[in-house]
Design a protein around this nucleic acid. Structure first.
Ligand SMILES: [Mn+2]
Ligand SMILES: [Mn+2]
Ligand SMILES: [Mn+2]
Ligand SMILES: [Mn+2]
Lengths: 219, 219
DNA sequence: AATATTATTTAGACAAATCTAAATAATAAA
DNA sequence: TTTATTATTTAGATTTGTCTAAATAATATT
């Protein structure tokens, strides 16, 4: 089963949107892929034909077991390349997503596995996301909550769930990265903004929009 | 000027075939790209439209100055990735061409330059071919001749002008690689085969077909 | 329950890249 | 210099992935 770049991008996006087991809607997928709902419907028919998804008119899309397997391989490649770009080529974390978006489509198991080895078989990418192993198995994630949900006070940043340059650049500016320890000083109900303090730093306030994309674990 | 993968492959092949300044024929290009002459004619019209080639019906194709510039960037990426695969991921020289054929299409100057730096700004790829610098400038090649043309007797291998897995695997089997020193023992006129001897090795005979793809320099 | 709104699908078109078969031009042979 | 051969181009079709506009289905509102 040989997938085109377009098909791979669809499969990966379906995987990303398919939290839990709710089906992915045509509109949501179109938005994620920056395309039109009509195009999604067209592609859905093709992917169903190839048995990569389950799809019935008006019922949304879920990955088949083959589709999930394919998705995990693409995600593996994507995240390994991100590691390479950050660890070896010294890119910063907000620059690598777009490049990995292209590199992920070079399909060679040997290349992927050699790259993983070269990087020391990393299990997390630069954004804290887990990297599937060669068999597509994901290490079970350490428990983490988003910063706007937690009730602990002293926390460490474990991941960021939005790879956009805008958010990552914002976090850079505030000195927040993976492993950063912080303390919650206040939670303002009015707009759900949160006042936090990093070690040796003045307190700062961050919006709910930012907080919900920062994953943390009590320390 | 944003090129598609197909356009890049055409540009690179034209560059490769355009030895000296003879125009590249439709048939030769079709053969090189493993496609049909009719497809070449179609693409030639598009590339002319984009001012990447000079082309008149029945007159063959030559790169324009923009086309040459583009070609050198693609070649640069191709050869840098080959270096990466061999030097860092420990691939052998016959495995890397096809992978680089895909990696070369990731267009990012920053990535390319970082990769070059990471590799120590190499000037030769694993097959002995020169790597254009960031400005597209090629180091002027050290003088070399093909093994079937030279009249010197003690030689060192400097490059291989056919990247096919078949030839490179053959050379591996015979212990011939870049930098290998050899001595010509005899030249048989009948089929232009050549008897050579590597250090500490029994003499072997190689065909003209092989010899003409091995570039050498007197030592 | 009827109506309005939103989500999704269909119909029909388009651009890119390719192909086969047929036509034409260029070149080589007689 | 005709004639045959080879190279190249054109005509018309196909596949993939996309789009807009219109039709239909599902859901929400009155
Ligand atoms: Mn991608
Ligand atoms: Mn990532
Ligand atoms: Mn290529
Ligand atoms: Mn090479």
């Amino acid at each position: 089963m040989n997938l085109s770049v377009a098909e791979e991008n669809y499969i990966k996006s379906i995987y990303k949107l398919q939290e839990g087991d709710e089906a992915v809607s045509t509109n949501a997928l179109a938005y994620e892929l920056d395309t039109k709902p009509a195009s999604v419907t067209d592609m859905a028919k093709k992917l169903k034909e190839k048995k990569l998804i389950e799809y019935e008119k008006y019922q949304g899309i879920v990955l088949s077991s083959d589709g999930r397997k394919a998705a995990l391989q693409i995600v593996r490649r994507h995240r390994l390349w991100e590691c390479f770009l950050v660890d070896k080529l010294l890119f910063s974390w907000e620059e690598v997503h777009e490049l990995a978006e292209e590199l992920e489509h070079v399909r060679s198991e040997k290349l992927t596995n050699r790259l993983s080895e070269f990087l020391g078989n990393p299990v997390l990418d630069p954004h804290g996301d887990p990297i599937p192993d060669a068999n597509g198995k994901l290490a079970k994630p350490r428990p983490q909550t988003s910063l706007d949900q937690t009730n602990a006070k002293r926390l460490v940043v474990t991941a960021v769930t939005d790879q956009s340059t805008a958010l990552l650049a914002f976090l850079n500016a505030k000195g927040i990265k993976l492993g950063t320890q912080l303390e919650i000083l206040a939670h303002y109900e009015y707009d759900n903004s949160i006042e936090i303090k990093l070690k040796q730093q003045p307190a700062i306030t961050i919006s709910e929009q930012v907080a919900k994309h920062i994953m943390v674990r009590p320390v």
